[in-house]
Design a protein around this nucleic acid. Sequence first.
DNA 1: ATAGGGTTAG
Length: 578
Amino acid sequence: MLDSKLRFILQRCVVFGQAKQVHGQLVVNRFNHLESVLVHQTLLLTKEFSRNVVNYVRRILKGVNGLDSFSWGCLVRFLSQHRKFEETVGVYIEMHSSGVPPSSHAITSVLRACGKIENMIDGGNSIHAQVLKSGFCGCVYVQTGLVGLYSRLGYIEMAQKAFNDIAEKNTVSWNSLLHGYLESGNLDEARRVFDELPEKDVVSWNLIISSYAKKGDMGNAVSLFLVMPLKSPASWNILIGGYVNCREMKLARTYFDTMPQKNSVSWTTMISGYTKSGDVQSAEELFKQMSKKDKLVYDAMITCYAQNGKPKDALKLFSQMLESNSDVQPDEITLSSVVAANSQLGDTSFGTWVESYITEHGIKIDDLLRTSLIDLYMKGGDFAKAFKLFNDLYKKDTVSYSAMIMGCGRNGMATEANHLFIEMIKKKIPPNLVTFTGLLSAYSHSGLVQEGYKCFKSMKDYNLEPSVDHYGIMVDMLGRAGRLEEAYELIKSMPMQPNAGVWGALLLASGLHNNVEFGEIACSHCVELETDPNGYLSHLANIYTSVGRWDDAKNVRDAMGEKKLFKTLACSWIESSV
DNA sequence: ATAGGGTTAG
């Protein structure tokens, strides 16, 4: 009787944020057995993740005498719900080694966490073994947790086996299996499971629809969407996401505008869609309309600016994010975009700021953030720092190698670039177009034409088709070396239309070697391709001057600013060059 | 159990 009254009072107190005072009273009055209620209530009422709450609960758990399976389970579940998966596993292990038997909540939560961590199959297996010993092997929730674990880690046969063992399967069990087939890419089998599913709920529908949407099969996605009996906001968001992936922003917008209950996922999806299609203005409009902005929306908008050549706007928004006293705090994802923005501005000093910010706020530096820092330091010429960060990478990949090689390329460090390239090939890390941009510019800056040529030719060995930019670098390299004829031949052999950059490289080289013939050809193309031709024309005029053709130089200078005149000039040059 | 944010070139 007393207990139930106390329980009630306790709950009210926690609601009013007085957990700590109540806890003191409990200890003084030796009502320690009620501490688990306190833990439970505290965690239940904590909607946002809070480090303080976790520390507080852990302190209580450490102080509790005797086994409190329930409280530990609450904490494990809390961590898992807030996506702190490594910590979930850590606390579970701590609980286990304290001799506390796991509750079913603890098991399902830790299984979920294992499924979200890469290479956690061993951990998952040992928990599976514990389940078999624990007496929870007949519990649907735990068994379903096992299906989910194997599904997420990609062991679909194991998932199917765990599923078969469930005596009374519920919809969640079915959905977990469905998820497994979708993850393994077996859409046909997934569809079979879906069709067999006795009581489809909104998640079953969302799962199958999202797999069609991910594949870009919007026809199937929409027709299922239309017939599903009850739509959740997620259903709408899945469709919007599907259209975003197909770059069908108009259609995405139609669904976004018609959906009855937009949530912040809907807004973020739209903003990142506009980011990818370069429509900063539409993204900005949506962002401004949003009333309650969460961290992910801020991230999306900062990235939008950073990826669309507006690094200053990215930084402005970032400082707004820091100033707002709400609960949006930057993390490693925010910072990777912010660092990228600073790289564009060439502000290396920012690196120092970020690094101290990271230490102060306990943000973990992951490989993506590290890669953006590498780029920042390489651009700023702080090679020692960049190489240190590079060596600290947990897993070096195409992007991080390319960032290094690009940095070497910019700074004419051909030996280092080549060394890095050989290393990545040895490690079977596939190079991409960016890698070769870096490599070629390294050779170009060092005047290593032979090596550059070989490198350019080798692109096809990696199934890479050189882009306009690669041709541009090659033309620049050959041209600087005085091999203008070859450069011109290369341009003529291009499978795509040369752009102003390519012709500009030839023009520049013609200037370096006072070559009128190629200078005229190159200039005429540049003039055709660009709206403002004066820079090119002045280059050409200089070439004429350098060979003593004063009249021609004067003609060209007169033509500057007069569209008609240079058009006629351009025509005559093109004719004469054919 | 389903839906949203990140790094390398131009």
